[in-house]
Design a protein around this nucleic acid. Structure first.
Lengths: 340, 340
DNA sequence: GTCATAATTTAAAACGGTTTGGTTAAATCG
DNA sequence: CGATTTAACCAAACCGTTTTAAATTATGAC
């Protein structure tokens, strides 16, 4: 049913009906009530595409999905979805086009000019992130999940990676560890750099020299966790503790330790970062995993909030949020074994 | 830039320009070439919302994201995205609205009438699935990822769950196992039922009586895997083998076995279903995990294909695809230990 | 009971394209 | 060579809303 017909049935003009439904003040309460009731009864809904055309709003926010299926992606999305369910806003997942060599940046550009979305969420930024520069230039509102040093105002939501890893590392040092290996995230991402810094600062604060051979970077997979941990554990002297970037990495480390016959929580300590997944929990691992914890889903929910704020006109400069990270100690951390 | 201006600059009518860009035949090759070149040069792109309004097409397909962040979701999405990247079609992730008690079915209904999508993908159907009935009634094209017994024509893509589990179970029986526990997926879903059937048929074929206490259902989490496995292993006599629904479940089983001091691959055998994740691989587990394997990402890619076929007019009745599932034997399966 | 003002309602003009139904120019045919 | 077909292009209608500007009606002041 079209607005025209619907209005006619009500004996009103399309204008008044439109206004009644959109909550404009210049329509009497009595009329508004009648209109909304009849709309529900007759099942009238404004054609979304007509609305989009005339308002210029897309009613959707864009999320670019990386090629590598990152397992925290769906948690973040779930959070977004949770919050956006009550608004009338969709989530547009933009596929990265493999055949297009220019790749990601091109994709953001297309997304921004396509008019399909009102705002975009940028993940895992780098200190000098091209995407951020681009979106700013194009005037597309966006929220960065993470942070960037780039000289462009941008709204962001991030967790305190630096502080989290500093505390985790400090704790290990407090327990007596001196050779602490770190299996960090992808090289070049801001969050990895922040974690590196937290790690180094913790060492420095205790006068422990930084050994670059104890820090590696890579994707968050159990495979890399295993490989890195394995090669670390084959060194002599071997590290007595690990700081790991993700739950999957921790699984790999557990496996590596076990494969060499080392007992986690006695001979090797592990602290990993936990994004909180419903299907894999640190507390359930054996031994239970000490972790820096911050809910990815909660970040999704809040990101949706912040995007809505941006869309309602709040300047990007005023949208910054840094979340503290919990450090939860469980069985996987203990003092290092005594030297024989 | 609008069509009007652009056409004027070219000295052509909007009609001709529109047709040239959309590939209609009634425009000369020379003109078409000029138009496309100039469009690229001047950066003209048809306003997507105007196109949507006038054509009635949304240029997007909808995916409903369940509340429980399922970890295979992002793999499937990744596949969809991969395939749709080259088409000009978006993926719309529809949030489930918690505040709305009618919930999922309502959501599908809204999605279907909203005009935001041209087709919908339905996940994890039940034998008599309300969503399928609804979408059919509303005339919204849809693809079911999985199958349903419902008396309504529907396009589907599914893997041979029944065959996979039948073979897995048969293999365990061949090895000499008699008490085989099964940790299956959510009660009531078609895929769980198919797996149940595969399991029972395998037993029956060898004359092994079916013991309902050996089969449980639940979400695919490490926690449930652990709990179920633990309680199975505490029974006497205890099962000597497990058939598990997911990688996460398998992690839980490994953990449970270990916690009781049982060695997987010697004292307890495990076969799990592996959807193939980049971040957690069956081959890397210790001991490596025997698995029924089928790539979730590949299913996503193919689903996109099939949806495109539906959209180009292929009748739903003709879109059915059943994929075979590999059985890959690794170290987690072995003959049961000899009775003492 | 007027007149000014405020509260409602409305007609018509966008929004930016696609498509229907011509029209004109060029090509083909008898 | 005139008639007929075909190729190429175009004017105008339409998609279904929102919004501007104007008209009507109701309210209040005097």
């Amino acid at each position: 049913m079209k607005l025209r017909e619907f209005a006619q049935q009500l004996g009103l003009s399309p204008t008044t009906v439109s206004r009644a439904l959109s909550g404009y003040p210049e329509v009497s309460e009595k009329t508004r009530k009648r209109v909304t009731e009849e709309a529900a009864r007759l099942g009238y809904r404004p054609n979304i595409n007509a609305v989009r055309l005339v308002t210029g709003r897309a009613g959707a926010i864009g999320v670019v999905m990386g090629r590598s299926g990152e397992f925290h992606f769906s948690e973040f999305m779930g959070g977004l979805a949770e919050r956006l369910g009550s608004e009338d806003i969709d989530i547009l997942v933009s596929p990265i086009d493999d055949k297009n060599p220019t790749g990601e940046i091109q994709l953001y550009s297309r997304l921004a000019v396509s008019g399909r979305v009102d705002a975009v969420i940028v993940h895992s930024p780098e200190p000098n992130d091209e995407r951020i520069a681009l979106l700013h230039k194009l005037g597309m509102p966006f929220l960065v999940h993470g942070r960037s040093d780039i000289d462009v105002p941008h709204a962001w939501l991030d967790i305190d990676n630096e502080g989290a890893i500093r505390r985790a590392t400090s704790h290990l040092i407090d327990l007596g560890h001196r050779r602490i290996a770190m299996i960090n995230g992808r090289q070049g991402r801001t969050f990895s750099l922040h974690r590196d810094k937290g790690y180094r600062d913790a060492l420095e604060a205790r006068g422990i020299p930084f050994d670059p051979r104890l820090v590696v970077h890579g994707n968050f997979t159990d495979e890399l966790g295993f490989r890195f941990a394995r090669s670390f554990l084959e060194q002599t002297p071997r590290p007595t503790a690990f700081v790991a970037g993700s739950m999957m990495t921790a699984l790999g480390i557990y496996r590596a330790a076990r494969s060499i016959g080392l007992e986690i929580g006695r001979e090797v300590s592990v602290i990993a970062h936990d994004d909180v997944f419903p299907y894999l929990t640190a507390d359930n691992m054996v031994p239970s995993l000490s972790a820096t914890r911050s809910s990815m889903r909660a970040a999704g929910v809040r990101s949706a909030d912040l995007v809505l704020q941006l869309l309602s006109g709040k300047p990007a400069e005023e949208v910054h949020e840094l979340w503290p990270v919990e450090l939860i100690l469980r069985e996987s951390t203990a003092p290092p074994p005594q030297a024989p």
